[in-house]
Design a protein around this nucleic acid. Structure first.
Lengths: 332, 332
DNA sequence: ATAGTATATGAAACCGGTTTTAGAAAATGG
DNA sequence: CCATTTTCTAAAACCGGTTTCATATACTAT
């Protein structure tokens, strides 16, 4: 392994001068600069990132902490984040929190000892107390309106999205519209429920019909069963996320209930699966890949400017109408 | 940030002794050991991994390089690998190669400069020449029978799997069975094609019907169109992977061709989507999560024993019969 | 001509660990 | 009892960069 001292020797200068060239920082004469660059080229020298990290207290590495990378929401996010990270010379560490208790296994502390430059949090499994403890670490938090000082949060306007979803079901002629909401410790779930309620309450002819779900496919299946038990006559269903919408449609198809003819279904998230599923699923699309990119960009921003204030970014969602709610004869 | 020298001072010993306690290596008297451990505890000292890395030329970090994390095969693999990595005190770096040219952007070289301890390769986008260049790095290569010295390769028995798939379609009564194969630079695709051919050639009454695909959903859609153009009477279809099977079924459903009644379909891989899709898809299941775990285990093994010989592991696949090929009246 | 500033460079200290070296003390043994 | 060997410890060197400090020279400005 070639070191900066080898380069220095070959170029007849001191290591300090080589370092200055490497970092493009401080005074170096044109002549020596040329010479040093030539030697670096010839030797194929690449600075050791670990040594550099020790000296500068950085690692050029970001971390993305998700609850479970197999949840289809996250790979897209990860891809966007990794792309931006790499473009800026950072690598991306991946962590799953599902099934790991955070107290005894403080992920962020481990990361700090590795001089990880910043963290993107996309999980509910790390409580805010723990986050608060690492306030000094550059952080971007997704889908949670967290009040960590210094942090940047990125989320979509869930209320608006879910208002749009509910109104869409109304507009395609649904008369009894139910909502399956996610776990309420999840702010996202709460907001989506709220949007649904707002719309229903604004229309006297509609009645609030809600059942809890857990944001999984199986949760969607059991929720829709429960729902049909009590209200066999529903004709519109807004699921709190796409995975539950998938479960719902699977179960309805098993019960020979037609989608969208008998029940129109709308999900939320815009995961790839909705496009692929048959019938294709109407959903409130979040710009997931772009959120990953934005998260990484904002994080890098914060790494370079450590004293940015906290910032809350709210993105717009987009209604994507597909077969599962398409009751007009128009083929899409 | 507390350093080993602070600990040493507080415990009235030298840094070297603290290091010996930390690494449980070399002679330390019971009495000092106790004292040092107590001080470490009290101070909440945690060794800086970067400094340690510089001295020991390690980082306690593995890298997983995939072509595209949004391909549903990879998240499961990543989860298994990350789980094992974390259990052994390693972190996992994630890299996507899709759309990145490897010559100018030598991923592994970047990783080496970070003292990444080992790499799991699950992409075809890094050519073997490049891999060869990093022969000294502990490596586990998935789904490619590569002849890198020192490396460990993990794959499934694709031929056996695809023989099973084809025979399964025969056993449910298909008379004209076609195969959509993947890109042939991919060894996996080649082997699966071969398994199909073996079976078809062993039966005089069957004829080889193959079309190329590209292992994507859209590829499945166009391949099945092409296939039906030429052979509208096929009644069995073995897709080279699950994504193409999904595309196939989507397109068949659009054409009002019933699955499995008119055409029975079987995929390969066992991604989650096959369980979720409607109809549920028969597939040759690979133990994806376990492959991720195994890859990480083998890699860690190789890191700890740097002079292991190259090793080729071949895992068994499992036929999972679901609706898409279930032509008996038996409900599953 | 002289003070003051910008440019240029190398030596040395530093980042925070690990490892080698060397010497002292204790245990073993012939 | 003296020669080894084993145990124990601290000082110093090291990993491979960056940064500070000190010094020297070349420009400006007064």
């Amino acid at each position: 392994m070639k070191t900066i001292r080898d380069v220095a020797k070959n170029a007849g200068v001191s290591p300090a001068t080589v370092s200055r060239v490497l970092n493009n920082k401080g005074y170096v004469s044109e002549e020596k600069k040329k010479r040093i660059e030539k030697v670096i080229q010839e030797m194929g020298f690449e600075p050791n990132q670990v040594a550099r990290g020790l000296a500068k207290k950085t690692s050029n590495t970001l971390a993305l902490i998700v609850s479970d990378i197999t949840n289809p929401f996250f790979p897209e996010l990860a891809k966007g984040a990794e792309y931006i990270a790499r473009s800026h010379g950072y690598s991306l560490l991946l962590g799953n929190t599902k099934g790991v208790d955070n107290e005894s296994n403080d992920y962020i502390k481990i990361l700090m000892n590795k001089y990880i430059d910043g963290v993107i949090i996309a999980t509910h499994d790390i409580d805010s107390q723990l986050l608060e403890k690492h306030r000094e670490t550059p952080m971007v938090i997704l889908e949670m309106e967290n009040e960590i000082e210094n942090a940047c949060t990125i989320k979509v306007d869930n209320i608006q999205g879910s208002v749009t979803a509910t109104e869409h079901l109304i507009s395609v002629g649904c008369k009894k519209i139910a909502h399956i909401y996610g776990p309420l410790y999840d702010q996202t779930a709460k907001e989506r429920l709220k949007g649904y309620q707002e719309v229903i309450r604004a229309h006297d002819e509609y009645k609030e019909l809600t059942v809890p779900g857990d944001f999984t496919i199986d949760g969607g299946i059991s929720a829709v069963r429960e729902l049909l038990d009590e209200h066999p006559d529903i004709d519109g269903l807004f699921a709190g996320n796409d995975l539950m919408a998938v479960g719902v449609i699977k179960e309805l198809s098993r019960l020979k209930i037609r989608v969208p003819e008998d029940i129109a279904v709308c999900g939320f998230d815009g995961i790839y699966l909705t496009k692929v599923f048959s019938p294709e699923i109407t959903t409130i699309e979040q710009p997931i890949y772009e959120m990953g990119e934005l998260a990484a960009e904002k994080l890098i921003d914060r790494i370079k400017n450590p004293h940015l204030n906290s910032e809350h970014i709210e993105l717009k969602t987009k209604l994507v109408i597909r077969q599962s709610s398409n009751r007009n004869k128009l083929s899409l």
